[in-house]
């Protein structure tokens, strides 16, 4: 569904990605593991068009995305839940969700309202807080809102950048349950995580990124068994 071929990305003289190849298959959860500054978020930003690669191609359902502005990529069916959530803090829950549907211009309000109802179905907590100012919610609730907001664009591929960051263990479980639930409804997901155990437990396939290079890839079971992963991410000697 999504293919990255030989992506090289630079921030000035600093090389963030050194020829990344990555494939996300339809209907699967693919996870991307890696430590700090490995280039995980850069890959996400490159896919959504916030960062332009120096070379290489990104293609989605056979179409090349490289040269397209972010809004065109979002309307083609990819949505990003950014690292650190980045919800609109002084807006209410409802306003955040409504903004998520920004690319669907000209759609009838009834259709948008219906989608908001669907999001409340996935995240009942959000319904209780429709008029609450988003910045005053807990981290876990903000993560749910960020995911709900991204879903409002009606994506077919959802990019999740470190959804467990800064959340209490109880919330991490809850968030990952919801990710799995969304996936079962047919959503393809690319998940960036530092928390390898949890990520591999729900993903079908994964990649390991170190300083801008893919160093290991395979099914979750293969990765869980691979030395590099056990060594670096699962805390085993």
């Amino acid at each position: 569904m999504l293919e990255l071929r030989q992506i090289v990305s630079q921030y000035g003289p600093v090389i963030a990605l050194r020829g990344v190849d990555l494939t996300v298959r339809q209907g699967e959860i693919t996870c991307l593991l890696g430590g700090n500054a490995a280039g995980k978020s850069t890959i996400m930003k490159t896919i959504i068009g916030l960062v332009r690669p120096t070379s290489g191609t990104v293609s989605f359902e056979g179409q090349t995305l490289n040269k397209l502005p972010t809004r065109a990529i979002v309307s083609r069916g990819i949505a990003l839940v950014p690292e650190g959530r980045r919800i609109f803090g002084r807006m209410t829950v409802w306003e955040n969700l409504a903004l998520g549907a920004h690319v669907r211009r000209g759609r009838p309000q009834a259709e948008i309202d219906e989608d908001i109802e669907r999001i409340y179905g996935l995240f009942p907590r959000l319904r209780e807080r429709v008029t609450q100012v988003a910045g005053t919610m807990s981290g876990g609730e903000q993560q749910m809102l960020a995911m709900g907001r991204a879903l409002m664009a009606r994506p077919r591929l959802l990019l999740l950048d470190e959804p467990s960051m800064g959340l209490s263990p109880a919330f991490v479980d809850q968030v990952f349950d919801i990710i799995q639930a969304i996936n079962r409804q047919g959503m393809t997901i690319l998940l960036v995580e530092q928390n390898a155990n949890v990520a591999l437990s729900i993903a079908q396939r994964g990649y390991v990124l170190t300083t801008g290079r893919i160093v290991a890839s395979g099914t979750s079971a293969e990765l869980l068994a691979a030395d590099e992963v056990r060594h670096a991410y699962l805390g085993e000697a």
């Binding site: 916030l50 972010t70 979002v74 803090g89 998520g100 907001r149 664009a153």
Partner: peptide, 11 residues
């Protein structure tokens, strides 16, 4: 509120 998030939403 957040320019990066706005852009990611397709604004």
């Amino acid at each position: 509120e957040d320019e990066i998030a706005a852009e990611a939403m397709g604004v």
